[in-house]
Nucleic acid binder design. Structure first.
Lengths: 227, 227, 227, 227
DNA sequence: AATGAATGAGGGTTCATTCAT
DNA sequence: TATGAATGAACCCTCATTCAT
């Protein structure tokens, strides 16, 4: 009945552990199954919302994709709207968690930022997570709660982090433009643009995001001597 | 009854002229009324689509806002979907027309770009036109025709124009970063970000777009001595 | 603007005559033009009603086919429903007129009936007039006025005429079955069936109506010695 | 996809029985309720389509008559059109089934045919089943699938059966007219006419179908000595 | 807890009818 | 008189939500 929960994450979130003993241990108690189901719904809903937007997404499709009955969704979420809002929270929280776990800043500021950029390119641009950004841009105005949450949890923290890095860069003499610290948006703008570009225009004009970001960093830090 | 036709184009197309003599000239011939109606529908639809997105917009509301009957919409547009697609065209075409009418490039490249930026700030960021950009980002994936059109008419031309300017700047020695010509996106990225920021986060953290764009240009052209 | 009125009949009904002198005589006075228009509408409406049935026929299509504006229809008919009812009358009356103008009955009863059958085959079965019969069968229950009219003008007269013929045949010894006079329907039944068959099943199994009617007459009058 | 529980079949399949003991036995399992609903929809739709024709029938009315919500109809049928087509099938199939179950042909051909005629008079002429015939005549041209189905399942089989009987009659010397075998339509024509007559003209001129069919058989088999 | 059949409000679309020109 | 743009009631169909099992 239950179909491939697809989502490793989900299972993990549910606290499932690989059966240690033999014989497919009866790991599945009630609560766990419920958590799995919930995770499957979240996963499925995310896919559908990203693919079609909030209004055009049908609960029927979410249920089908999650391998549960339509009614089951209502055991986990009050209604479509609050499902959407919770969803964004659920998906974003682990992202934030990772941001918080900043690796110790060894090396130059530019190296640090390049590492960030590399991560971003691999894990956001052109991936489902990137589409989530677009989804928030798309639905934000109709879901102030979502926009607020996203601002609070991701944008404001991200901006603060970037600003700190920029200030460090300025202090170390890596960055000349002192005013840049007032607008960390400038630092991340090309990355955001890359995300949008990929989902709208990649077909017409593929964009080498990695190269673009490097050029952008050159603009800020000065061109590198060594590649 | 008819509300602010806003849409200069439509009124013009209808050949309307301000009544010169007294006596409220009988300006209303058939074609003109039709053009006014159409303009009212376009205007109303734009507002609604921007406010709610494609799927959540009701034709009933568009009709009400435009002051026409629901059936009237179907005299001008085949259905909701093609109305949306035509709408984007209708609103964007005059923008493109203006882009084509480039003013003679006197003065420095930076001056030219600053002029652009000024225009953009006044006429796009924080205006309905800006929301249109967000709308296209939001609905693009579900309306390839819209994304295609927008890419062809606006993005590709804009990129080409920016690239030409950048190359000019490089040739004149105003811009140091030669690679920038490969990615005009970098030049416009902060402006786009400003557009999005205004409609999503302005409430939480107002953004001084003008100042940010100036900082960004300083990054590219070097800081100005005189403001 | 006005397109080919198609309908010779219509023009005739309107009293139009071929211009005798040269120069396209100014035959068109108001009344005549109106009559032409009306005839064109009747013709067009008939085609559409037959092709689609009452409910599925659009006045728009009738107007287009008749080469008039939609509003014009309302100058001639109160509404769609009464148009339909009048239509049937208009089309049927000339048929009835012809029935009344019975040719002098020379020859045998069988010859007379065969002449009828021949006419019927040529002018009804498989023609638009035949479809009219099917239309009446189809819409009769929802248009009692139509059914009534058709019964009064066509069916009852036809039955009376047939009965008279049958009685004549019995009196002359051509027909043995005396009871047949009570059910003239039996005489015409195969002809009606042929009409229906042609429009429903001809594609699957073509029917040689002429031959079938001959066999039927043989049944009633006895087989002919000479063909 | 959809199963054909026909109506009678449906109720039976549901195993409903009059409660034997007191206390309204809990006869209602899920599947049964569904079958009942479906049957109610079929029944209601039939009534409405017969009364108003396809185009003029409103799903709202069908739902109301069937005692279900509008949406429920769509759980059983794809849309109005395919509902109509399936409906005809559902109602006709049991009729065909009965035709196939021919009783052993004892007695004369005439007796056999009179038995048929008697059945037809009781169960078709003037009943809802008769109206169905008229409905098919009415909508056939717009629903080729319906006409095709009806031809294949009812008409062609009926014609074949009648032809066989006629040939038997000829072989046994009951029927003189050898050519009749080529046109079994002649045999059934008066019965069909009776069906149509009843729904269109009965009000004006009641028709004694039984007597008419007897006269018709007399025409084919010769008049009976004994009544 | 989970199901999915049932509901019915709501929205896109059509089209008979009207009326200003 | 003729037009056809405009109207808005009505209809088919969808889909979020409920609830008996």
């Amino acid at each position: 009945m239950t179909k491939k929960p697809t989502m490793a994450t989900a299972a993990r979130a549910a606290g499932q552990k690989p059966a240690l003993g033999g014989k497919a241990a009866p790991v599945s108690n009630r609560a766990m199954r419920a958590a799995q189901r919930r995770a499957a719904i979240v996963e499925a809903a995310m896919e559908e919302f990203i693919a079609r937007g909030f209004a055009a997404t049908r609960l029927d499709d979410i249920a089908k994709r999650a391998g549960v009955a339509k009614g089951t969704i209502y055991l986990h979420f009050k209604d479509k709207e609050s499902m959407f809002e919770e969803l964004v929270r659920i998906v974003i929280v682990p992202v934030v968690a990772r941001l918080d776990a900043l690796p110790p800043s060894t090396g130059s500021v530019r190296d640090l930022i390049e590492m960030f950029a590399g991560n971003f390119i691999n894990e956001v641009i052109g991936t489902r997570r990137g589409d989530l950004v677009r989804l928030i841009v798309a639905e934000g105005p109709r879901f102030p709660a979502v926009a607020d949450f996203y601002y609070r949890e991701v944008v404001s923290r991200g901006m603060a982090g970037m600003r700190a890095l920029i200030e460090l860069g300025i202090a170390r003499g890596e960055i000349q433009q002192k005013n840049l610290a007032r607008y960390p948006q400038i630092l991340v703008a090309p990355a955001i643009i890359a995300v949008i570009w990929q989902s709208l225009f990649a077909r017409h004009a593929p964009l080498d995001a990695k190269d673009m970001l490097r050029v952008h960093l050159d603009l800020i830090f000065g061109e590198r001597r060594t590649t």
